[in-house]
């Protein structure tokens, strides 16, 4: 399961992971737009203080394990391969590194109908290509209800692709994730 967010995304993500159940078996990979020199570890400890699952920045070629939350490191793209992560320092996509599109597209390629994507609050349209690709590959696509988002541009843009399965507030997104994580 991949999650992307930008403006207001850290706060939204904090609320979302706080609602995950201990024992949830999903592997959650997150790309949040942030400054290239944002301090390592600060985001991890912020989220870890709220999340019942272990949270860490993904390292190169880390094995993807269920019941964990992985963050794209600042100034790297995070890519998903079958069973593991890979990183790259290719050019920013839509001025962003990490790019939500890169994470979503590679996750969809690697896990197809077993993958899923969530777009959170944000003020640009990163993630749109990724959402479309995820839909084509058979993954489930969700977007934070724009009315509940700090910035609605990114959710609106994702919905406009016509490739979104569910538009939900954060607590209901968490409920879906918990449901998938129990299965």
């Amino acid at each position: 399961m991949v999650v992307g967010g930008s403006w207001g995304g850290l706060d939204a993500l904090g609320q979302l992971v706080a609602l995950l159940e201990e024992g949830c078996s999903l592997a959650l990979a997150v790309a949040l737009h942030r400054a290239a020199d944002s301090p390592e570890g600060a985001m991890v400890s912020y989220l870890q203080s709220r999340c019942p699952l272990p949270v860490a920045e993904a390292e190169d070629k880390d094995a993807i394990q269920p019941g964990r939350v992985y963050l794209a490191p600042a100034d790297y793209h995070l890519l998903v391969e079958p069973g593991r992560f890979a990183l790259s320092i290719d050019a920013p996509v839509h001025h962003s590194r990490p790019s939500i599109d890169v994470l979503f597209e590679t996750a969809a390629d690697a896990y197809e109908e077993a993958s899923g994507a969530v777009i959170l609050t944000g003020a640009n349209d990163d993630g749109c290509r990724g959402i479309r690709h995820m839909k084509r590959r058979g993954g489930v696509t969700m977007v934070q209800d724009p009315c509940t988002a700090v910035r609605r541009e990114m959710p609106d843009a994702a919905i406009a692709t016509g490739a979104v399965d569910k538009v939900l507030p954060l607590d209901q997104i968490a409920a879906v994730l918990n449901g998938l994580g129990r299965a």
Binding site: K61, L79, V80, E81, A86, D90, V102, E105, T106, D109
Partner: peptide, 9 residues
């Protein structure tokens, strides 16, 4: 090479 990134390139 790592497949996901070479595929993108």
């Amino acid at each position: 090479y790592a497949r996901a990134s070479i595929k993108r390139r």
